[in-house]
Design a protein around this nucleic acid. Structure first.
Length: 419
RNA sequence: GGUGGGGUACCGAAGUGGCCAUAACGGGAUCGCCUCGAAAGCGAUUGAGGGUUCACGCCCUCCGCGGGUUCGAAUCCCGCCCCCACCGCCA
């Protein structure tokens, strides 16, 4: 949800922001509806005031005057009953229409309509020099015996995987390495619930648009979260945060569940696209005046991690048309996979500004009132995809895979060899 | 799984049809007085959202949520959501 007051008072600001994505249909309709709504609201409130006065007068009037006073109040009550439904209807129409308006893209977001207009801002690390034929992560993982997708089909179906042996140690090491780094940056580690109520999915904006993407536990009417962002953001809903405690930084570690509906036949083997994976996510509640600094901090952490793991990557800035509805800016880091000879999205960082906070009602106290906070999220380490990138980039001719130096204190070994 | 109890402001809590909604009472917080300083004591302040106005202000809504009865609902009726306690089971 965007700020209707801004739209009302400065429609030209909203219009020019939306122009970057080729305009937003429905914007003018919302302006009209808002105007109609307020006109009708004034009408109803005036009636209510009159009715309140009439009702109150009854209690104080002498008994012989009561029948007349009651009749008078009743007439007003009837008029209200005839007027109020139209207001309610307008409220719903307005809210529904307004909910479709996407967040305003930040000034630094490139214009564009689709993913073709996304901008590669930088490439870091370059492709590694391999003097042998590089294998993709599926071949490497099978040879090393660190994951087993074929048997996971027996127990759970496609797109599930058993992680085994050194693969597990690698995961645990990545988790601890990432957590240590984030704690140093002022993030509080958190393991959130992965089953949440429906309102948490709505509040964070994943519902209703992407409802089909998530698992539902029918018997209890709970949903499996696709990212810890959901439970972390919803944790502070309906709260007014003290401005001294902002930014509130959380490093969430959880399993993530995605149905991957509509992706049949894409990345069916291996770890790239699985229904269940573990991820460490950065999430910040920031003061609205300082959220872009916070955004840069989150992005810097992402790059720091990729560099420490010696994974070559490129920085992809999403254009206005490819932002989704809640994001004011979104930047991805895509790792180069020498085996698969393609780029793979490893992290994504979003500043939702006040869009998500408005739904969740997370505010802070300001001089003379309250103000919505800004919410930001950014992947720190999506474990399975990070393992993919590590395997492909650190593979050697003899089939072994090296462990980057920064990770070795955590793994306790410096390479993984075929058994 | 069984049986009860409960959702009122920052927290606890009273309120069973108008005299109880900024909302009793207690606590907390903030400011002031007192003090060398503090504690204690005394005094004052302390919810959110919305409409309207240049402004002072005025008005509307909110007692878990949604309906109903009534001139009038925290209070009566119906439906839903959520929380807690005890027993049973359980890593």
């Amino acid at each position: 949800m965007i700020d209707l007051r801004l739209l009302r008072e400065h429609p030209e600001v909203v219009r020019s922001a939306y122009a970057k994505r080729g305009g937003v249909r429905g914007m003018d309709r919302v302006i009209e509806l808002d105007e109609e709504y307020r006109a009708r609201l004034r009408e109803v409130e005036e009636l209510r005031a009159e009715h309140n006065r009439a009702s109150k007068a009854i209690g104080q009037s002498p008994p012989e005057q009561r029948p007349q006073a009651i009749a008078q109040a009743k007439a007003l009550a009837d008029r209200l009953k005839n007027t109020e439904p139209a207001l309610e209807e307008l409220t719903v129409t307005l809210d529904t229409a307004a909910a479709y308006l996407p967040n305003l893209p930040h000034e630094s977001v490139p214009p564009g309509m689709s993913e073709d207009d996304n901008v590669v801002e930088r490439e870091v690390g370059g492709a590694p020099e391999l003097d042998f034929e590089a294998l993709d992560h599926v071949a490497l993982g099978e040879r090393l015996g660190i994951f087993d997708g074929d048997r996971a089909v027996k127990t759970s179906g496609s797109r599930f995987v058993y992680l085994l042996g050194a693969g597990v140690m690698l995961e645990l090491s990545l988790v601890r390495f990432t957590m240590d780094l984030l704690v140093e940056q002022g993030f509080t580690p958190i393991v959130p619930p992965v089953l949440v109520r429906k309102h948490a999915m709505y509040g964070t904006g994943f519902f209703p648009a992407d409802e089909f993407e998530y698992y539902r536990v029918d018997a209890d009417d709970l949903y499996l979260t696709g990212t810890s962002e959901v439970s972390i953001a919803a944790m502070r809903s309906d709260e007014i945060l003290a401005s001294e405690e902002l930014p509130l930084r959380y490093a969430g570690f959880s399993s993530c569940f995605r149905r991957e509906a509509g992706t049949y036949g894409k990345d069916t083997k291996g770890l790239i696209r699985v229904h269940q994976f573990d991820k460490i996510e950065q999430f910040s509640f920031a003061h609205p005046a300082r959220s872009w600094d916070e955004y840069e901090r989150i992005r810097a952490n992402q790059e720091h991690i990729l560099q420490a793991l010696e994974i070559p990557y490129r920085v992809l800035v999403m254009c206005a048309g490819d932002l989704g509805s809640g994001a004011a800016k979104k930047v991805d880091h895509e790792a180069w996979l020498p085996g698969a000879r393609r780029y793979l999205e490893l992290t994504s960082a979003t500043n939702a500004t006040d869009y998500q906070a408005r739904r969740l009602q997370v505010r802070t106290r300001e001089e003379g009132g309250t103000k919505l906070v800004h919410t930001l999220n950014g992947t720190a380490c999506a474990v399975s995809r990070t393992i993919v990138a590590l395997l492909e980039n650190h593979q050697r001719a003899d089939g072994s895979v090296g462990i980057p130096r920064a990770l070795q204190p955590y793994t306790g070994f410096d390479e993984i060899r075929p058994p």
